[in-house]
Structures are given as structure tokens and as C-alpha cells.
Design a protein around this nucleic acid. Sequence first.
DNA 1: TCACTCCAATTGGTTGACCAATTTTTCGGA
DNA 2: TCCGAAAAATTGGTCAACCAATTGGAGTGA
Lengths: 231, 231
Amino acid sequence: MLAHPDALNDDDPVSRLRGFIAHGDYRPGSRLPPERELTDELGVTRSILRKALDALEREGAIWRHVGKGTFVSATEAGLTQPRGSLAELGRQLTPVKMMRARLTIEPAICREAAINASNAALTQMNLAMERAHAVSNWQDYETQDDNFHRAIAEATDNPLLVAQFDQLNQVRRAVALGNVVRRSARPGPDHPSFGEHEVIATAISQRDPHGSYEAMRNHLRSVSARLFGEG
Amino acid sequence: MLAHPDALNDDDPVSRLRGFIAHGDYRPGSRLPPERELTDELGVTRSILRKALDALEREGAIWRHVGKGTFVSATEAGLTQPRGSLAELGRQLTPVKMMRARLTIEPAICREAAINASNAALTQMNLAMERAHAVSNWQDYETQDDNFHRAIAEATDNPLLVAQFDQLNQVRRAVALGNVVRRSARPGPDHPSFGEHEVIATAISQRDPHGSYEAMRNHLRSVSARLFGEG
DNA sequence: TCACTCCAATTGGTTGACCAATTTTTCGGA
DNA sequence: TCCGAAAAATTGGTCAACCAATTGGAGTGA
């Protein structure tokens, strides 16, 4: 497994700077030494130090102002637990935990979609579902499967829930990458997901919140069973 | 939904660079123009451009090598989902939709926490809850309220769900900013949230998934009622 | 003693020149 | 015509000098 980018790497300036702040008793809101002093304490040149400060500032761990100095943010985000990128999260997350997260989030979004879906959103959703039937290889199927699930998120008519789904989905792609073994060149017409998708779409179209929730939950459990075995 | 997140803050060099890559038909693995050309195309100095490239490299969206050039990563992480759009999302989202998103996500996370919480996580959660009682002003209360809800997300023992909560919470802070009017200097001992928090914590401690779900849902509906009126 | 002004020191930000790794071109020899 | 080494051009990385915002104290006058 890959170590975290700057957890174990003492030669990484960003991790050294994090360590300096974390172990230097700098409380939120307190001021750091000026850059020209930090260069001495950390033993790096100013340009290298500034690159590390840029990274921490972008994460929100510190804020700076000309003439004033550099200060530790009120929320210590990124100091005790450096906020890894989503790609990094995808690399660390086990497929089982990925699936548990999907089972937690997606049925809830699906229920909200059943409550808020406009007719236009329903059309979009059904379109994505039908396209999945016509694909000629697994890669295209994945794309259309993505589109179908995303169409459900958009049917909630809530940009924040769409953003939540996108975050979930981005990590999912990183986790799934290269882990899947297919037994055929393309999904057959009896692929279980096709039927499950239709149950979901029907429930949402009928504005049935509980039915939509259960349909999505069953679908994901079915996917889970195919991935990890029935257990 | 935001059609072009990058178009909205043209002043952020990172967003502009993201937009340039996203709309410039650069496929994963392809090479970007050299820095000295990008400065012309984006109309920024090289140092500003390099700071933006540093940010994208740290996110894993690109990789660079001296003499070779700058390349788009195999996984397009950070290009379709620019981090900067969250602040914009917070500005556009109505408080009502914010609350609907919370009602969709947080009870689901709370149920998952009841299933997976370790004893250490429970301790952390209870600690955050007790701290909220001792605050002397509303700002500290908000902080401790944040901590309590985040402790629940961490109790799921699932980094992805924590990331989902963080995204939700980040937008919430942007939405809530400056919208709240308080009638007293600090939360009184009979503040409804105190009791509701305890119900939640108890349900999670007893590993009661359904009870935890309902407790969180009731809490959020109570907050919603205080914000928007009973309707 | 207080208030105000001004100047020097401090501090983060920016710039242009230079450095080193890599690729491309050039050109002589077989 | 082909090969290979050397030179030139390209490209990302680094550095030292300089810039501008801010602070704080010395100086001045009422």
C-alpha cells in the first residue's frame, strides 16, 4: 500500500512544516515565525518553504497577509489529519468501505429524488437507462451506469446533493479502477442491473420515496453480492 | 447545477487553469503547453501560473518533469470537480435546500455511525457534546456543534463518509454565514439542541441504527423549524 | 499627558535571471 | 545513406534582489 504523501516523508517540506506547527504548540489563531526565520529552523530555502506554505494555505490550515505575518487558522483543518486528495482517498479506501458509503448515501439521495423530481429530470433519467441497454462493451456500460446514477442525483433538484454524489462517484472510480474482472465482452440482456435500474426508475417516476429508497438499496446490495460474494 | 464552475471565478488562477485544461480537449496523459506559453494564453505571470500548477500537481491532477513538460494525470482528479466551486455553491444554495440536503445525508450517516462506532469514537462524541454546554458565546457553540456532528461522521469509521460530511459542512458554513439572528448572548441551558444531541448520542451508544436515524432527523427538523418557522 | 505625523524596520509577494534535466537538431565520419 | 556524438534549444526548478503592505516607535507640538 502507498504511504500517505507526507505522513512518513521527512524530506517533504510540507510534512516538515506540518510537523513544526503541530509539535510547536501553535494554537489556532497564533502567529508563526516570519518566513526568513522558518527557513533557518527548517533548513530549507525560502522558495521551498513558500511552496509548502502555499499548499497549507490552499488547504485552509493557515492564512497569510503582507506585513502582518502567517497565522494558524481557527479550524485546524489539515494539521492533525492532512486532507488528502480524493484520488488519495480512493487509493486507501477498501472496496467494502466504498460500498458501505454508497449504501449509506445513494438510497437517501434516491428517496429525495422521488420527492423532488421534475418531469424533465425523469426524462433524462430514463434516457440514461435506455442507453445502457445499447452499449457494446463494458466501458461504455460503466459510463451509462454513471449517467443513470448521476441523473438520479440531479433529479433531487439540489446542487449540493449533486456535488455530494459527484464526490462519492469520483472516489468510486478511483477504487474500482482495475479491480473488476468481467466474464464476457459486454453486459448481456439478462444482466441483473438492467432490471434493478428499471425498478428504481419506476419507483421514482411514481414519486414513491420509500419504494425508491428500497429499490436503490436492493440494487446496491445486488452489486455488492456480485463483487464480494453472497455473504 | 453549475454549468461552468470555472467561469464564475475568473480571478482565481487555479480555476482558470482548470478551465483551460477542461475545455481545451486535453485528454489524460496528454501534454500541456510549456509554462512560458501558458503565461501568454492565460495572461498571468509565470510565478502565478506556477503557483496554480503547484496546486494542481499536489491534487494529483497533473504531473511534471524537468525537460519533459507538464502532463494531465491518468485520473482526471480535480478537473471535473474543482474545489473552489464549493464556496460558490454555498453562495447560490438557498438555506431551505441546504437543510433538505442535511436531512437527506446526516441521518443516514448517523445510522451508519450506530453500526460501526468504536468505544473511542463514542468517547470523542460525548466529549464534544459536553463541551457545547460550557460555551460562553454563540460562536463557540457553533464550533462545538460542528465538532459533535463531525464526531458522528468519524464514528462511521469510513473516511469517505467523513469526506462527504466535510463537503456538506463546508457548504453549510458558507450558507449560514451572517444569516442567523440570535435573541441572547449565548445558548441557555434549556436550548432544545442540547436535549436532542443527548438523544442522538444515547441512540448511537446503544448501537440502535433506526433510533439514531430518527434522532438525527428529529434534531434537524427541530433546527429547521427554529430557522424557518414551524410550517 | 495625549494625539498626531512620519520614517524605518518587518513581512509576505513578485520578478527576472540563472540552473539542470531532457529533447531536438546539427554535422562529421564511415 | 546511416550512425553517433556534440551542440543547441526547450523546459521545469530555484534563487536572490526587489516591491508593497503593515507595524511600531521616535519625534513633535499642543
